[in-house]
Computed example of a mutant assay.
Amino acid sequence: MSPLIRYQLALLLRSQRWLPPVLLFVLLIVLGSFGGQQYGDSLGWCAGMLVPACAWLTRTVLTGEPEPARACVAAASGPHRAHLAPLTAALAVNSVLALAGGVFEWLASSPPVGVAHPPLAEIAGHGALSVLVGLLAGTALGALCAPPVLRRPAAAVLTLSGASLALLVAPVSPVNMAVRDVFTSGSRNAATTAPLLPLLAAAVLLALAWTVAVHAAGRAAGRTAGE
Rank of each mutant, 00 (worst) to 15 (best):
G138Y: 04
F25G: 01
V182N: 02
P20I: 05
L165N: 10
P174G: 04
A98Q: 12
H80Q: 15
L120W: 14
L132E: 07
A74N: 11
P118H: 00
R81F: 14
L62D: 00
Q8T: 08
W18K: 09
A100P: 13
A156P: 00
L144Y: 01
P20W: 08
L208W: 08
H83T: 01
Q8I: 02
L23E: 04
W210S: 02
P66W: 04
L136K: 09
G44P: 13
G36N: 12
A55H: 07
V131Q: 09
Y7W: 09
V26Y: 04
P52E: 04
A190Y: 01
H215Y: 11
P52S: 07
A53K: 00
G32I: 04
R81V: 12
T192N: 07
T139Y: 06
N94H: 05
L168S: 02
G44N: 12
N94K: 05
G162R: 10
T159C: 14
L168D: 00
Q8V: 03
S95I: 06
A10P: 04
G222M: 02
G35M: 10
S161C: 13
S77N: 15
L205E: 01
L167D: 05
W18S: 07
G102F: 02
T58C: 06
A216I: 01
A85D: 11
T184K: 12
L200A: 15
V26E: 02
Q8L: 05
A10Y: 10
R223I: 05
G114N: 12
A124I: 10
S77D: 14
V22E: 07
A90D: 11
A92W: 03
V214G: 01
P174F: 06
R152Y: 08
S110E: 15
R6L: 11
P21D: 11
A74T: 08
A140V: 04
A170G: 06
W18M: 08
A155E: 10
Q16I: 01
Y39T: 09
L167A: 06
L129P: 14
L120S: 15
C46G: 13
G44R: 10
N176D: 03
F25R: 01
W45K: 05
